[in-house]
Computed example of a mutant assay.
Amino acid sequence: MNATHPHHPRPIRVAMLARAVFPLHGYGGIERHVYHLTKYLTRLGVEVTLYVQSPSDNAEQGDLQPHAIETLRYDYTSPLLAPNSVIGRQINFPIYSWRIGHRAARRVQHGDFDVVHSQGLCAFGYAIARNRIPLLRSVPFVANPHGMEEFRTPDRRKWLAYTPFRRLYAYGHRQADRVIATDACTKDDIPRYLRVDPARVIVIPSAIDVEECL
């Protein structure tokens, strides 16, 4: 069965905005989620264009076969500051998100995508463009905030340090047409932490490839 647009005999075209994906950038929860989602959407006939950070020179793509991969620099602070430290992350990630969001927005304006799907803070950059350019609102925007650890940290110093990050995170997801909760237990956390209208929150569990796990 092929996933096609209901009004056109062509595949659905998805812009997948993420920071990293397995195996290009190693292991990690979101990395594996983006990998499996891309892998199986592609098998269903969906044309997925991945927007991710530039991989290392020796990175392997494995069986990850999206329609296309667009890469952008993520690390703007190294070697002066660790790229994923509390401060480094709040410098690198918003810049990266803004750049991929606007790059994807240009292609949406040209009619290249039917759906935009963001992971984590990657919602922020596209949300800015979508709020500014009315044409972008005609294309569905789905955002997946995942664990939102920056909202849950018990460390008061870290919680204060991440204040700007949380504001960008919340803003990005409030601009989406639908926001994904990965399970029923965290469904209420999205309106609580991100102030998203509960009517726009849907539960879609992150898929697990049972055969691969075995």
Results as ranks from 00 to 15, higher is better:
L72R: 14
L72P: 03
Y74S: 00
Y74N: 00
D75P: 00
D75W: 00
D75V: 00
S78R: 02
P79I: 09
L81H: 00
L81W: 00
A82I: 02
N84W: 03
N84C: 07
S85G: 08
V86T: 12
V86I: 12
V86F: 07
G88C: 06
I91D: 02
I91M: 05
I91V: 09
N92R: 02
F93L: 08
F93W: 11
P94Q: 08
P94T: 04
P94K: 08
P94F: 07
P94I: 06
P94L: 09
I95H: 00
Y96T: 01
S97N: 00
W98Q: 14
R99S: 12
I100D: 01
I100G: 02
I100Q: 03
G101C: 09
G101W: 05
G101V: 07
H102V: 12
H102Q: 13
A104E: 03
A105G: 09
A105Q: 09
A105W: 10
R107Q: 15
R107A: 11
V108A: 08
Q109I: 15
H110K: 15
H110Y: 10
H110Q: 14
H110R: 15
G111A: 04
D114T: 04
V115M: 07
V115S: 06
V116M: 01
V116N: 00
V116Y: 02
V116W: 01
H117I: 08
H117Y: 11
H117P: 05
Q119T: 03
G120E: 15
G120D: 15
C122T: 14
C122W: 03
F124R: 05
G125C: 11
G125R: 11
G125N: 11
G125V: 12
Y126H: 05
A127Y: 06
A127P: 02
I128R: 12
I128Y: 06
I128C: 09
I128T: 07
A129I: 05
A129S: 09
R130Q: 08
R130L: 07
R130E: 11
N131D: 13
N131W: 11
I133C: 12
I133S: 10
L135C: 10
R137K: 14
R137P: 08
S138R: 15
V139S: 05
P140Q: 07
F141A: 10
V142L: 12
V142Q: 05
V142Y: 04
A143E: 06
A143N: 06
A143D: 06
N144V: 15
P145A: 02
P145L: 06
P145H: 04
H146P: 01
H146R: 07
G147N: 15
G147P: 05
G147Q: 14
E149W: 15
E149Q: 14
E149R: 15
E150G: 10
E150L: 09
F151G: 01
R152V: 02
T153M: 05
P154C: 13
P154Q: 10
P154R: 11
D155N: 13
R156T: 13
K158M: 13
W159C: 11
W159Y: 13
L160Y: 12
A161C: 04
